[in-house]
Write a protein that binds this DNA or RNA. Structure first.
Length: 563
RNA sequence: UGGGGGAUCGUCCAACGGCAGGACAGCAGACUCUGGAUCUGCCUAUCUAGGUUCGAAUCCUAGUCCCCCAGCCA
């Protein structure tokens, strides 16, 4: 690293950590954790948290645990824990042997609850859920004490033990912290610590019928693991006093502190698990890994590289401001990464047949093509050229407008890595639709250069008709048409769904080198964008997903013209 | 009308009492066998009003606007 290279300024979380380390706090130790609830798939918002927690640990010589916050068996499933593990790994982070579950601490959590009861800081409440809500008061009115609030310790102990023993039905009683029913912070109005749930837990089975609440389990889990900096999102800020209360009233082995940052919002995207679940369940997308989803599995299938997502998370920064990041920044990061690494290849998405009239019938030439002009180390390959070719339909216009540089009657263009060709005829069907172009080529321009120095304004991609491979290509666009889906429809985000978010092309033609492509492989289809092989591709039946288009000034001009 | 947060280019992030800077987006140009990439230039911001100070985005006071909280969810 050169002396002039500027290191980006530390965000406020990193600043706090740097200061704590500097001050010698936590014996110079740094320990963070990523604590997902296994009740859904991870999305790009989680990636921000993962990059923060694992990133900060790596940067400052600390460690980051993966901990599943699995305290609500009614919503959690193993399918989700497996997908979450796969996604974190794919993103490029490693929790090594430090895989934990809040459910691993159920016994300790229970014993700590006994401690709170014995010290008079928790009580069993017989009020119903509705009654508890009524007693809680409102934002502007204090709550009032439950009639069970002053139960003797012995009775609380007895009841709590029997709650665990399964003597009571769901909802019959709860364990509550005894704090302050008049607190201006509603979270401190005797929050529920334990509820009765006769439900099968994905890890503990039916061993428990009482389950701890997040506010109680989380700080203790952090303490158990020796977490130094417990990083979460802003909406938990109001819970921090309860986090602190729990740790300060229990003989826990460690005293962690909570810090909050602003969650990520992305334009043209919804991010809440509820909404994503709805898109999946109601069939607006084809699953959690639908390439239009902002889930990590969707982005992976779409072809977004983990490097690009990490770079994005770095660029958006970490702050405490509500934010909506422009989707264009994510796409920029994807292009930036793929531009460096993706092999170039030629594929015609909407084929238009071209016959080179002066090219010998039956002749096939193998021409040299560069695999990646950004990285010559990636070598070259051969592409076949023949009398009958396909070019992109949109690369020909019978009546070209002013700024259109591509092929038109009488006009000469270059076929990439091949020859200059000139359009000498147009064949139409009975509907007047162009079905074939008659062209001539200039043999002297082999390789793409004219010895006489004449220039062409356009270079087109192409494939040799007989040698090309047929493929299905799926074109994706943003899932929503509005930057803030639902904003203009009273929150009904589905009203802003983009009807053109998926277009399936069946008769695409690929250069033959693509025969070897396997699911997950990615390419740049020259002039068209970045594409990857979908998991549904089979040998002989290739399926490609468009990851992202190239920057396309011409398309932009046309869009602007339409408006 | 309780409590907790937050307001800086269109967007995101910096500036930690001393020239408001970077990235994305947008616009214009150069270059180019991808209308790609690359390179140049331009555009645009401190919520308001007072105050402290030689000097304020930063400190103080008073407002305004936005977000979060009344799950036996996390």
């Amino acid at each position: 690293m050169s002396a002039t290279e500027t290191t980006p300024p530390l965000d406020f979380i990193r600043q706090i950590i740097a200061d704590d380390l500097q001050a010698g706090k936590n014996e110079g130790r740094l320990m963070t954790r990523f604590p997902p609830e296994p009740n859904g798939y991870l999305h790009i918002g989680h990636a921000k948290s993962i990059c923060l927690n694992f990133g900060v640990a790596a940067e400052f010589g600390g460690l980051c645990n993966l901990r599943f916050d699995d305290t609500n068996p009614t919503k959690e499933e193993v399918e989700y824990v497996e997908s979450i593990k796969a996604d974190v790994r794919w993103l490029g982070f490693d929790w090594e042997e430090r895989l934990y579950f809040a459910s691993d601490y159920f016994e300790e959590l229970y014993q700590y609850a006994i401690h709170l009861i014995k010290t008079g800081k928790a009580y069993v409440d017989d009020l119903s859920a509705e009654e508890i809500r009524e007693y809680r008061g409102t934002l502007i009115e204090p709550g009032k004490d439950s009639p069970y609030r002053d139960r003797p310790v012995a009775e609380n102990l007895d009841l709590f033990v029997r709650m665990r023993a399964g003597e009571f039905p769901d909802g019959a009683r709860v364990l509550r912290a005894k704090i302050d029913m008049a607190s201006p912070n509603i979270n401190m109005r005797d929050p529920v610590l334990y509820r009765i749930l006769h439900a099968e837990h994905h890890r503990t089975g039916d061993r428990w019928c009482i389950y701890p609440m997040y506010d109680y389990a989380h700080p203790i889990s952090d303490a158990q693991e020796g977490i130094t900096h417990s990083i979460c999102t802003l909406e938990f800020e109001d819970h921090r006093p309860l986090y602190d209360w729990t740790l300060d009233n229990l003989p826990v082995p460690y005293r962690p502190y909570q810090y909050e940052f602003a969650r990520l919002n992305l334009s043209y995207t919804v991010m809440s698990k509820r909404k994503l679940l709805q898109l999946v369940n109601e069939g607006f997308v084809q699953g959690w890994d639908d390439p239009r989803m902002p889930t990590l599995s969707g982005m992976r299938r779409r072809g977004y590289p983990p490097e690009a997502i990490r770079s994005f998370c770095e660029k958006i920064g970490v702050g405490r401001r509500e934010n909506i990041v422009d989707l264009a920044l994510l796409e920029y990061c994807v292009r930036e990464d793929l531009n460096r690494r993706a092999p170039r290849v030629m594929a015609v998405l909407r084929p238009l047949k071209v016959v080179i009239e002066n090219y010998p019938e039956g002749q096939v030439e193998e021409l040299d093509a560069v695999n990646n002009p950004e990285d010559l180390g990636m070598g070259t390959r051969k592409v076949p050229f023949a009398r009958e070719l396909y070019i992109e339909r949109e690369d020909f216009l019978e009546e070209p407008p002013k700024k259109f540089f591509r092929l038109a009657p009488g006009r000469e263009v270059r076929l990439r890595y091949a020859y200059f060709i000139k359009c000498v005829g147009v064949v139409k069907d009975e509907n007047g639709e162009v079905v074939e172009l008659r062209c001539t080529y200039d043999p002297a321009t082999k390789g793409g250069y004219a010895p006489d120095g004449r220039q062409v304004k356009a270079t087109l991609h192409w494939v040799a008709a007989a040698q090309s491979l047929a493929a299905e290509v799926r074109l994706y666009e943003r899932l929503f048409t509005k930057p803030a889906p639902g904003e203009e429809h009273g929150g009904d985000f589905k009203a802003d769904l983009n009807p053109h978010s998926l277009e399936v092309l069946q008769n695409c033609r690929l250069e033959p080198s693509l025969a070897a492509a396997r699911p997950g492989d990615f390419f740049q289809f020259e002039r068209m964008g970045y594409f990857c092989v979908d998991k549904e591709a089979a040998v002989g039946a290739p399926v490609f997903n468009r990851t992202v288009t190239l920057r396309d000034p011409w398309a932009k001009m046309q869009q602007a013209g339409k408006k």
